[in-house]
């Protein structure tokens, strides 16, 4: 089975019903995608499937065949953060960090899709990503700041 992961063509040879999150983490060593609940509630496992945020814990990899998957590893590196990641660093958008990759992927899809960057729109876009540390305000600020190009 073939799929594109972070712009690279990959072939997957394991069980077709393996979850996308497990294929990413175990077969492609992309452990940036986290599992928080296995129920599709917390959004920590969010990746983009053909550009749209989805819960990778609820997708058998066979349903990703032939499609494009983007994970946190496609964003900036520690020494060269993307604008959005830099926004999170500057505004306190990450604390324990376990929700952060999923949060960033959802925020990235929202901004890339032309979503509005006012407080209410960002909160609505991120409603599927639970964070227990921040109370969300600094996450929302981070997204808004990145969207406005502030550092």
């Amino acid at each position: 089975m073939k799929l594109t992961v972070n712009g690279k063509k990959k072939s997957f040879k394991g069980a077709p019903f393996k979850r996308l999150i497990d294929a990413l983490r175990e077969d492609f060593a992309l452990t940036g995608t986290k599992e928080g609940c296995g129920e599709g509630e917390c959004g920590a496992c969010t990746v983009l499937l053909d550009g749209e945020p989805v819960n990778s814990c609820l997708i058998p990899v066979c349903q990703a065949a032939g499609r494009k998957v983007e994970t946190i590893e496609s964003m900036g590196a520690p020494e060269k953060l993307s604008k959005l990641q830099a926004g999170f660093l500057a505004c306190g958008g990450a604390q324990c960090g376990i929700c952060t990759p999923g949060m960033l992927m959802t925020a990235h899809a929202h901004l890339k899709g032309g979503g509005k960057c006012d407080d209410a729109s960002v909160r609505t876009a991120l409603a599927g990503n639970l964070c227990r540390c921040t109370g969300y305000q600094d996450i929302v600020k981070s997204v808004v700041a990145a969207a406005k190009g502030k550092k």
Binding site: R19, G38, E39, G40, N55, C57, L58, I59, P60, Q63
Partner: peptide, 22 residues
């Protein structure tokens, strides 16, 4: 899969055949 996979993750559907309509 937003419902079926929740049950699957809990180990409730092991050994089953799945008709993937996607």
């Amino acid at each position: 899969g937003t419902d079926l996979m929740v049950g699957w993750n809990l180990g409730q559907l092991n050994g089953r055949a799945v008709l993937d309509l996607s």
